[in-house]
Amino acid sequence: MSTGVVRPPLGRFAAQHLVARNYLVYRRDWVVFVTGFLEPLLYLLSIGLGIQQLVGDFVLADGSRVTYTEFVAPAMLAASAMNGSLFDATFGVFFKLKYEKVYDAVLATPLRPVDVAVGELVWSLLRAAVYAAAFVAFMAILGLTGSWWALLGPVAAVVIGYAFAGAGMALTTWMRSWQDFDFITLAVLPMFLFSATFFPLNRYPDGVQWLVQLTPLYHGVVLCRGLTTGALGVDLLVAVAYLVAMGSIGLAVSSRRLGTLLLR
């Protein structure tokens, strides 16, 4: 079954109705929504209050000097965008796909698999953007932003979320059971620890640096750190290109796979 050739009677933004459905569900579970703010915030406070005193200041590539908290905070922003968007796009999609059969019902309407994929992705990104906006505001209050570019933090979070939600949703279409999600955890945790999040790239052994630079979260961290510290460079554009490509491939694979699974 092809997913892209048919004329959609609802126009191009049919996916918005699925986003509205998710909003309706979350409006009731606002506690779950609010807890999403907490995790990165707690990391930030623990580092700001404790570790910074032990580590001292950092000199960035462009020669500017930042505190350790200023160095780590953008990495937390990137990591929370990753975690936040992955949750809905993997566990959320799997639950609706296999247990709730939400998409079976959705596809009995004019919506197409691509609308489902886009709808879930947009929803993940909206959440990521809201969390990121709050996080950046908190950074500003704590004096952790060294540039007006930091205002683009939520946009960076959306780009990062796009990459991870797209890829995560695509992988989810191959998941057979909840146990399979351990593979995602297995990929996410090392990335969280070793994507130049807590210490800079040049501290990694030479043979490992290229490996770090291949990971998507590394590019997310580069993007956020560049914006909040104001140390801009070409590497930010590379990061955006990498993340957008990853998300787009994920989205294309997701809508194809959803079609294969649901329109048998």
């Binding site: 959609p8 019902a105 309407t109």
Partner: peptide
Amino acid sequence: DGPAIRARLGVCPQDDTLD
């Protein structure tokens, strides 16, 4: 013309797919 057809059908599947 799947979407155009589905727009004019009512479907009550065997397994309830209620949300």
